[in-house]
């Protein structure tokens, strides 16, 4: 269970998050929607521990741990995974080496035995099949020269390998055609489980046709201004984000599935 309370964050002195509240229970999938510049990506980066952003107020409690006190790599080892909107290229470092280093860092942290080369290869090849990635991608440099779709698949592959407790997907649908979107969504759905929660950040409701959320929140000017069930996404699709601003601010909807 992650509880975000009154979160304020700035970058270069400019306020981006302005008192954001959000709770995601274990096993739930929450979608966060909002127009460009509403703070969606900032929320993802702040949760993952990027130091470019300064948290000026508020708290994030994650199963009793103060998430904000941990450096980025410890959050990752504790089970927080961010699927990047723009996965970073690391020339010269092979994908296989990178994945193995990451998986073993996390396994070490969890007190599990580290994979040797053979076990790791067997495991990674299985997961690659599931996201329809060719084996050659293992031996290419991390994300270098990957197409947009290949980068996103690589993110989902990493998520599968790292088995996070909380996954934050930052616009994983952007730049994908419909077929690639389906593959990525299937990959995500396969990982849904009662122990794992997910925050799915998206601009368009299209992704939510494939990853059906338990709740939908609308972010505007660094705060959640509306919460609801799946139907909220459809309403947004129909009326556009302008519609939110004209609606009286409703209290964040509590409760269950639509």
């Amino acid at each position: 269970m992650i509880k975000i309370h009154n979160l304020h964050a700035t970058v270069d002195g400019k306020a981006i998050l302005n008192g954001l509240d959000l709770e995601v229970a274990d096993g739930e999938v929450h979608a966060i929607m909002g127009p460009n510049g509403s703070g969606k990506s900032t929320l993802a980066q702040v949760l993952a521990g990027r130091e470019t952003f300064e948290v000026t107020e508020g708290s994030v409690d994650w199963d009793g741990t103060d998430l904000l006190a941990l450096p980025a790599e410890e959050r990752a080892r504790a089970g927080l995974f961010l699927a990047f909107q723009y996965p970073v290229e690391i020339p010269g470092v092979s994908n296989a080496y990178f994945l193995k280093a990451a998986v073993n860092a996390i396994r070490r942290h969890r007190g599990l035995p580290e994979y040797d080369a053979m076990d790791f290869l067997a495991r990674v090849k299985t997961e690659m099949k599931a996201v329809d990635m060719k084996e050659e991608f293992l031996y290419r440099s991390v994300n270098e020269g990957f197409s947009g779709g290949e980068k996103k698949r690589n993110e989902v592959l990493q998520m599968a390998l790292l088995e996070p407790k909380l996954a934050v997907l930052d616009e994983t649908d952007s730049g994908l055609d419909i077929d690639a979107l389906k593959v990525v969504a299937e990959g995500v759905n396969r990982l849904r489980s009662p122990e794992r929660s997910m925050i799915v950040i998206t601009h368009y409701q299209r992704l939510l046709d494939y990853i059906v959320p338990d709740k939908v929140h609308v972010l505007s000017q660094g705060r959640i201004v509306r919460s609801g069930g799946r139907e909220l996404a459809l309403e947004l699709e129909e009326h556009g984000y302008g519609w939110i601003e004209t609606q009286p601010a409703a209290p964040a909807a509590q409760g269950g599935r639509p």
Binding site: A48, G49, R50, E51, P71, A72, E73, R75, A76, R77, F81, L82, F84, P87, V88, I90, F98, A101, A102, A105, I106, H109, Q158, L162
Partner: peptide
Amino acid sequence: FYAMQRGIS
């Protein structure tokens, strides 16, 4: 940051 987010120091 990308590497650290994957748990690598």
